[in-house]
């Protein structure tokens, strides 16, 4: 469940603005950067472009070039994307717990070692 695809999906979907961008694209079928930026207050063209790049790298949207314009549309199977997102949220929690436990054991090991050194 820790494959890079689900991590990329997680990072892509975790941001509210990116979700809103997906929503807009889904609603209209296909949109350009300018069309997306014009529908957001306070989110500039550059920011929209960078969100689109993250969404594209996560495989959630696809890009079609038409002269000067790039048109974006959804690619994913919605259910798969949601499942990948949820799976990585829960797996992330276990991975962190596991790392914390390993660290605690290592720290305890160090303490014991130091004690040995002191007594030696």
């Amino acid at each position: 469940m820790t494959d890079p695809t689900s991590d990329a999906t997680f990072s892509a979907l975790a941001d509210q603005t990116r979700r809103a961008i997906l929503g807009l694209i889904g609603e209209h079928g296909e949109l350009t950067v300018g069309e997306i930026a014009s529908r957001f207050d306070g989110v500039g063209r550059t920011a929209v472009s960078s969100h689109l790049r993250i969404l594209r790298l996560a495989g959630l949207i696809t890009e079609r070039r038409d002269g000067r314009y790039r048109h974006y549309s959804l690619t994913s199977t919605p259910a798969d994307t949601v499942v990948a997102f949820l799976a990585s949220v829960y797996q992330n929690s276990l991975d962190q717990l596991s790392a914390a436990m390993t660290e605690a054991v290592a720290a305890a090991g160090n303490t014991v070692q130091q004690d040995d050194e002191l007594s030696a």
Partner: peptide, 18 residues
């Protein structure tokens, strides 16, 4: 983790996927 279909549909819609 168990999540029912209706909730998955809602999440998919919230994520802007459909």
């Amino acid at each position: 983790v168990t999540i029912d279909d209706r909730e998955l549909v809602r999440l998919g819609a919230d994520f802007g996927l459909h």
